[in-house]
């Protein structure tokens, strides 16, 4: 494992911890899109089916369990927790999952590494992860007061994706036969979706003003 990959995974972990901190400690999920969180839960549930079929490493297994557990518990908190659920911006979070899930499923049945259930679901999880942030970005645009934790959460998620690209470049040049077209294209598309957010995030940082996305 190279430094970019490790840094990417740690940034991903940090993003989840920031979100759990907000939900668990402040008991608020204001500004967080339940749609995005549900899409992540589906993403991990379909991608990490290999927990039952392949053993890669202790690190790999532990991280998968953490991402699965955290994504489902965040969804649980937002839907069921008697205090947290009240802070959910239901009326603002209007993106339809269905419009993302269906095209991803169709695409996965046509473009995959192998036409088996496991490989189709793996490709589906990559397509879905690439677009899962969209409801969150839409919600951010509609939120007047983006709190620091929410801004940091989205920033850390974007940083995780950018670090994964560096990891792929590194692996491409250092490992023989390391080629993952589907992963790469999805990863680049996903990272590009953050470009606009990054721009405003750095602007607000530089000027030391509150983050706000133009509608």
């Amino acid at each position: 494992m190279n430094i970019f990959r490790l840094a990417g995974d740690m940034t991903h972990l940090a993003s989840v911890l920031v979100l759990l901190l907000k939900i668990h400690t402040i008991k608020s999920c204001a500004g967080i899109s339940l749609k995005t969180q549900e899409l992540y839960a589906i993403t991990f549930a379909t991608r990490y089916l290999d927990l039952f079929t392949d053993y890669i490493s202790f690190y790999n297994t532990v991280m998968k369990i953490i991402f699965l557990g955290s994504s489902f518990s965040i969804v649980w908190y937002m839907r069921r927790h008697k205090v947290v659920r009240r802070s959910y911006d239901r009326d603002q979070d209007t993106f339809r999952h269905f419009f993302l899930i269906l095209p991803c499923l169709l695409l996965a049945t046509f473009i995959n590494e192998k036409l088996t259930a496991k490989e189709v679901l793996w490709a589906f999880s990559l397509y879905l992860e690439a677009v899962a942030i969209l409801p969150q970005l839409v919600l951010l645009q509609r939120t007047r007061n983006i709190d620091n934790l929410t801004g940091q959460y989205v920033f850390l998620l974007g940083a995780y994706r950018a670090l994964y690209i560096l990891n792929w470049i590194y692996r491409y040049f250092t490992e023989a036969r390391y080629v993952h077209w589907i992963t790469w294209i999805c990863g680049v598309v996903q990272t590009l979706l953050y470009a606009d957010f990054f721009y405003y995030y750095f602007q607000s940082w530089k000027k030391n003003v509150k983050l706000e996305l133009p509608a």
């Binding site: 990959r5 995974d9 991903h12 290999d50 392949d54 890669i56 490493s57 790999n60 991280m63 998968k64 991402f67 590494e113 793996w122 994964y164 990891n167 490992e175 023989a176 036969r177 390391y178 080629v179 993952h180 992963t183």
Partner: peptide
């Protein structure tokens, strides 16, 4: 084995 079939990333 083809390295592309081993999915060791998260």
């Amino acid at each position: 084995a083809n390295s592309a079939s081993i999915k060791d990333e998260l």
